[in-house]
Design a protein around this nucleic acid. Structure first.
Lengths: 157, 157
DNA sequence: ACCTGAACACCGTTCAAGT
DNA sequence: ACCTGAACACCGTTCAAGT
């Protein structure tokens, strides 16, 4: 809180005029990150939605943790899964099933990016040796294919 | 640290003889929780492994967050995904693919339980109204079926 | 309406010194 | 080998008071 206030050229106490507490501020930051998500409507493929969410998260430092906190307090303005729900419902899914499938994908994406970003942080602090390979594209794509194939299998049922 | 020391009847500083810092201690707690996982070998079904991991996490308060921290610092003694990897390799999967599939499932399970446990915490503090329904078995089972079906689909390929 | 000053009740961590 | 006492440099948060 004091560091944020510093950057704004203000006292830390001033923040509490605008936000109830630190947790609420963090949730707002997570929500702001999610506002970057693409919004092409139902014609998008599930893979495109997933890759877009991952890319949005990877663009901002600690985004996965911030968004997880945002989700935890509930009431985010820009829920990450709405795009996936829209796509699935356009394909004839029941709302409940679409919600469950979408949140399974969100959990996977958040978990994957969180792992990626904690590794980036450890690497930045020097706790981790740099020879670790760049970024786990393969692991993400493989997991994504499992989820998309599984969703297709359940839809066909 | 001071509260843990209190429970042990000791000064907070004493903890630093046994652990390098708070993060390491938390990781050790997460690791201890994972030691509760069942270990029936390769004959277990993927669903059984997944439900067992979920049950282990739900048995301990904040387990998902603790285990996530444990995973973040790396080097956990009891990696949560080893069971799934063993099952998949016994079914003829490549080690790399088995690892990717297993960590996709771990991400899903951790994400799901974390959501459940933050809701439990908000409920305990009274921030959330109690009329929220008990526990999201349906959402977990649906997501699990997607992942298992998807894994079967990719294995058949 | 928005911010400051000053305080309150905490933190994690270090380190000389004890036994 | 294991712990204490005491301190250091921080935290998030509150609240009267200012403008």
């Amino acid at each position: 809180m004091r560091r944020i206030a510093d950057v704004l050229g203000v006292q830390a106490a001033a923040i509490y005029w605008h936000f109830a507490n630190k947790q609420t501020l963090i949730a707002a930051v997570g929500d702001a990150i999610l506002a970057d998500q693409a919004d092409w409507g139902d014609s998008m493929a599930l893979e495109e939605w997933a890759r877009d969410l991952r890319d949005v998260l990877l663009r901002h430092r600690d985004a996965a943790e911030l968004v997880a906190a945002s989700l935890a307090v509930g009431l985010c303005e820009h829920a990450p899964e709405v795009g996936a729900v829209a796509i699935l419902e356009a394909q004839g899914w029941q709302p409940d099933d679409a919600g469950h499938a979408a949140s399974a994908m969100v959990h996977f994406i958040l978990g994957h990016v969180m792992q990626e970003q904690t590794r980036q942080n450890l690497l930045a602090v020097g706790v981790l040796a740099p020879p670790t390979e760049a970024i786990d594209e393969d692991g993400f794509e493989f997991g994504l294919q499992i989820l998309v194939s599984g969703a297709r299998a359940l839809a066909a049922r």
